[in-house]
Amino acid sequence: MSPDAHFDEEIYSRLGAAILAREPARRLEGEEGDSLRVAAGVAVYRNNVRAAFLGVLEDAFPATRRLVGAEFFRFAAHEYFHARRPSSPLVARYGDAFPDFLESFEPARSLPYLPDVARIEIAWLSSYHAAEAQSLETEEIVARASVDPDRARFRLHPSAQFFSSRFPAHSIWIYNREERQDRLDLPETGEQGVFIRPDAAVLSYRLAPAPFAALKNLAASRPLGDALSAGLAAQPDAAPADILSELLSLPIVIGVQTPES
C-alpha cells in the first residue's frame, strides 16, 4: 500500500468505523501515539456525532420527547442511529424515518399513538419550512370556480401538510407542544386535519372525515365534484354544502383551474 493509500485507509475507514461502532474501542488500530489519548480523541468524535444527531431529533420532536421523557428519548435516538445509518447531508430531514422506527420500537409499544404524534411533528416542520405562496380570498375562489364548479381543480398552498391518526394524536401533540399541565380530556376517536402556513405562522385545522377526504382529493388534483363525492363516501351523514363551506373557510387554495380557464 502506498503511504497515501495507507493514510486514507487509516483515517477514513478506521476512524469512521470507530465512530459508528456500538461500543467504544479501546484503541484505534494503526493510530500513532499514547493509546489513552487516542481513545479520548475517538470518544470526542463519537460523542460529537451522536450529540449532533440527537440534537436534530430533539429539535424536530419536542412533543414526542416530552411524552417519553428526555432519558427515554435519548435511548430511542441512540437506537435509531444504530438501526439506520444516516446517509444524507440534509440533516434537517434526518428524523423523517423516526416515526416508522418508533412504530416497531419494542420499548415504546405501550404508547401506540407515539409514532403518529411524531408524524404530526414532521408534518408541522414541513409546513413551517415550505415555500411561500399567497392564499386566495374565498370570494376569489368562488368567482373563479363558479364557471364550472364540478370540474374546477384547486391548487393548494405548498405548506399544506395533512395528518391523520386513529388516535387523538393531534390533541396529544398540541398539549405537549405547548407544554401544558392542565387536565387533558381526549376524544375516543381518531383525528385528522391539515397544517397550513399562509403567512409567518403555521395554522393547524382539525377536520371532520368529510372535508378531510375532500381536501386530500383536491390535493391529488381531483376536480371539486369528485372531491366532494369522496368526502361523502368518507362521512355519509355530511352535507355537501357544509363540506364546501368548510373547504372555503381554509386559507389553503392558491389557484383555481376550470376546463375553460
Partner: peptide, 14 residues
C-alpha cells in the same frame, strides 16, 4: 461523509 454514511461532524482529513 464516507462510504455512503453521513457523520454530521467535521472530521480531519489525511
Amino acid at each position: 461523509a464516507d462510504g455512503g454514511v453521513f457523520f454530521n461532524d467535521l472530521l480531519p482529513p489525511p
